[in-house]
Design a protein around this nucleic acid. Structure first.
Lengths: 131, 131, 131, 131
DNA sequence: GTGGTCTAGACCACT
DNA sequence: GTGGTCTAGACCACG
């Protein structure tokens, strides 16, 4: 299941997010083995160099760890995963709030915009009550 | 008052956002003349070509219109400005919500995260209740 | 009745075409007096310098002639007007045909495209027989 | 085979047309790789920045797509190419017909002018009936 | 190797 | 004065 790539963002970052998302949502669990560079490269139809870089970055962030000769594994420290999740959520929140405030939107309006959007979205797709 | 530039994003995009923000928040109003390429270049200490590019993009988005030999002006169509504001807010919201959902965060939690952050933030600034 | 200006083309050229069109279609006849720079500038809301340039060019093309102290007049030589009309039509035709051939459209198709477009256009606007 | 440049039109636009023509006439096919900025710059003896701009515009029109680090490719969507061809032909036609009508030329005359011009032109090239 | 951005400095046409 | 284009040369990130 290859990813849809957005040409604006570097591919290696997109794959990073893809893997982090899998970890954070539990698709990949703490201590799990992750695919080898070659495997993932073949699966995603991507140059192995790019995958290599992805893993380097993930290691720098201590999300994955290499066991020499055995392969790469998701970090086994659960708290680390939680921390990553919080960081990612924090960044999203930060960007959203500062953005909205730069647009001069009032705090109360921000809340209602969010709730409205969620209310709308949680109804079925293509089944609007009033367009 | 020169802008703080973030090295990750192209300068011309940052200036674009800066100007769009001014328009959307009313600092620049519909029909106002905007600074000439050379003026803004001098003020921001940026090469005129870069400013030129900024303005070209703004024009393509119909945020700004050129009157030959006279200079550039904020679009005189108020509705266009409102539309832009909505677009910008919509994008922010979209990115935020899809991001949070990809992290596997439940809708109700999203709302409380937002309200909490706003509650915190509005105290903050020089008026700590408990640090 | 001010003209709608297209920002891509120099204003003075647009006014030139405007006047030539009037001459060629008989709205302005051979020998007619044409408005003064100041008049036309006021009427079209345009900088007099621009009008001045328009007239200079028209004079260079011998479409109008200046009588010192009296004003400017459409050339009194009818054949000249016919010639201009032919030139303008010729240019249009030339640009059209070379353009179509560069697109690789066959000659027979060009004819049918033109006849079709005219047939369509000559019916009432907004009253298509089959969309 | 360098292009002949017309000094009135910006070079980057002329190269755009040149490439679009190649695509529309099938010289460049859907999905084909197009020359790199540096290659084309060298071949046409043009500054790479100018070529860069050409390609940016083509991309904005979705005629061409960039694959990061790999190069640029003609859009792989055939229908897109057909659409572009129709647009280009439509613009030519539009400009021609409105121009002729502004000159006060009757519809029937327009058709005969076109057919005559084509008849003339198609003899010419090496096959004169009577010179 | 690819494209993307930026600077510096120049020339031009338009109003 | 205004914007628009072009050149020359440089640096960077990506694959």
């Amino acid at each position: 299941m290859p990813i849809e790539f957005d040409n604006n963002l570097p591919i290696y970052l997109q794959i990073m997010q893809y893997i982090k998302r899998q970890i954070v949502t539990g698709t990949l669990k703490a201590g799990d083995k992750i695919p080898s560079v070659r495997e993932l490269a073949a699966e995603l139809q991507i140059n192995p160099n790019t995958i290599q870089r992805t893993f380097q970055e993930l290691e720098r962030e201590e999300v994955v760890e290499t066991k020499r000769g055995l392969g790469r594994y998701v970090t086994s420290e659960e708290w680390k995963i939680m921390q990553i999740k919080k960081e990612m959520a924090g960044e999203l929140l930060e960007r959203f709030l500062t953005g909205m405030q730069e647009l001069g939107i009032k705090e109360q309006d921000i809340v209602s915009i969010v709730t409205d959007a969620l209310a709308e979205g949680s109804q079925g797709k293509g089944e609007h009550t009033h367009e």
